[in-house]
Write a protein that binds this DNA or RNA. Structure first.
Lengths: 353, 353
DNA sequence: TTGTATGCGTTATCAA
DNA sequence: TTGATAACGCATACAA
């Protein structure tokens, strides 16, 4: 080595030498995993300060420990789309909570379509959380499984013995439907979430149900049809207010075919339907009842309170985090079934006629 | 070692031995960084498959390479709150694009209040992107700077020589205000974003401006006051439609004091003001003009197009990503000033009287 | 309470 | 095209 070498960053060995202690002692000063005499600690800290040492290199530490402290969350599609959904963000919050002790943070990853190797195969993470396991995500699952790291799937059919976090979507949807039926409604229309990756908006036929791939949509639809077997349904292309408004217009525009109640598979869609109703001069709930699903706090709904099924979105994330923590401790992950809670709001009432 | 040891995961050395090649050769097969005879590659791959080797351990690779491929994004507060703002999500999208070549993913981190060491100090990342540098974030900045890693700050006063991504908030706000003045409005009210971490809703006084900490709010207010020096302003507690509606009611309820135009510092606030106006039976823009800021696609605004200043939200993220990439290549980061573009919509018109 | 020794699994360099 | 070898920076088991 010449004396003109680049000013290499100080390592813990440099600090130890400067302080006149062994590297192991210096290491312990930073990790706090053993008792160190106050005087020794001071000397080490002083040496660190003198050398501009900012603490152990996380990369080296994670190799040595076998842990990086990072948990990956795999979302489908663009981040923007994922974060547009309040349920997803609430869940992410729960996840960070559930992982707080354990983790440095959450690594956001998309399940990229084409690439095979992809980032999933080589991200320095300790575990994976897959969200909305469907189609593409299933390919990601293969890659992830191959790495032998803990995996938890939220709301998706993982197959195999992979722990999942699930919701009682069908039962909860049926609860909402029953509430509407008990109010006296017989002529009800449904608005579903996207059926598959194509996300086509349109009438939901038997054929389309048969080829649907999104479990959430299928399950909630099944619950609704349990109560209203013959209700017609239109699939939205996504969970957006404006999308709900479009479908709402399709359903409510013609007085001859207008239902007395609309059940939407998400709160955002329901708000859109309400907006469409208002545009058409219909009052909610006097002229038409509208119910949603999710129980999120919808910004922009004003004083109305949506009748809906409140899903434990934050809990979903927290549960996933806890399972990850368990598996990282060497215990086996357990599939958790969470339940939604019906909430009566001001947007449903007995039909006028 | 006893023969009863735990079935250790295969390493690249095991694969090399199994395949009868040197570890360096096996390594190259996986990294693709040198030419390898097809036959050799086959043998290595076969050995890997036989041993269930899923590719190089990312932790070891990142120690050796000195890179983890991960970039941290530090947000203040709950993720849920951060992602409620469409501007943030758009920016994240741009960031993932700007980082695509470079990075394994984005590590989402909260700037945790109390803890000193915290995850920021020990996350195995290559660089940091701080968003909305204010108050708490400034403490995070210290920690991050100490690590000597590249840092970029988006919309915040970073101090020192840290590269930033900034917006021409004052000039753009003045543009909107000028448009409204040119339409003939003289009696204008302002709705600002939160002034500080307390996020108190209320009249904006000189005292409150003096103690304000949120740069975006201060700058946009300055731009508006440049055109309407005496316009009264009310600060909202956050950028939400419902919050805008509350402030809107405060401003518009009394016909005696009702302004002919309202300038809001965000599109969501503007939409809330419009909703308040509609509630009060006022038509927009006939009875009252409303303008916003941001130029996001507001879900739920319907057919109206908001008059606003369109900020390059995605570009902000992308620019940050590009600066990170530069710095990781060893070049120095450059502060980028981005500009907003005025967009006339359907929500502003000349005053009736 | 402190020090010694070892290996975590790779990849880069260089020589063959 | 392949192989031998040396770091990368740290944390732990164990001995003193």
């Amino acid at each position: 080595m010449s004396s003109h070498e680049t000013p290499r960053r100080a390592t813990i060995a440099d600090v130890a030498r400067e302080a006149g202690v062994a590297t192991s002692t210096a290491s312990v000063v930073f990790s706090g995993k053993a008792k160190v005499a106050a005087a020794t600690r001071e000397r080490v800290l002083a040496a660190a300060a003198a050398l501009g040492y900012a603490g152990p290199d996380p990369r080296a530490a994670s190799l040595r420990r076998g842990r990086s402290g990072i948990v990956a969350v795999v979302l489908e599609g663009h981040l923007r789309a994922a974060f547009l959904d309040p349920v997803t963000t609430a869940m992410m919050d729960g996840l960070t909570d559930g992982l707080a002790e354990l983790s440095a943070g959450i690594l956001l990853m998309r399940d990229e379509p084409g690439e095979d190797g992809s980032a999933l195969a080589s991200a320095p993470v300790d575990a994976f959380v897959l969200i909305g396991c469907s189609g593409r995500t299933r390919a990601s699952l293969e890659i992830v499984r191959g790495r032998g790291l803990p995996v938890v799937v939220i709301e998706g059919d993982a197959g195999g013995d992979i722990p999942r976090i699930t919701l009682d979507n069908a039962a909860a949807a049926a609860d909402v439907a029953r509430h509407v039926r008990d109010l006296g409604h017989r002529d009800v229309a449904l608005v579903t979430l996207a059926l598959d990756a194509e996300r086509e908006r349109g009438l939901v036929t038997q054929e389309r149900i048969a080829t649907a791939t999104v479990d959430v949509t299928i399950d909630r639809l099944a619950g609704m049809r349990e109560v209203f077997p013959d209700a017609s349904a239109i699939s939205a292309s996504g969970s957006l207010i404006d999308e709900g408004a479009i479908v709402g217009r399709m359903l409510l525009a013609d007085p001859a075919t207008r239902p007395t109640a609309v059940l939407a598979q998400s709160d955002l869609l329901a708000v859109g339907v309400i907006r469409a109703a208002e545009e058409l001069g219909l009052r909610v709930p006097e002229d038409v009842s509208v119910a949603g699903f999710d129980g999120i706090a919808v910004d922009g709904l004003g004083p109305q309170l949506l009748t809906t099924s409140v899903q434990p979105a934050v809990e979903k994330g927290r549960a996933a985090g806890e399972q990850v923590a368990r598996m990282l401790r060497g215990e086996s992950g357990i599939t958790q079934h969470l339940t939604c809670r019906f909430r009566q709001g001001t947007t449903t009432a007995p039909p006028a006629r």
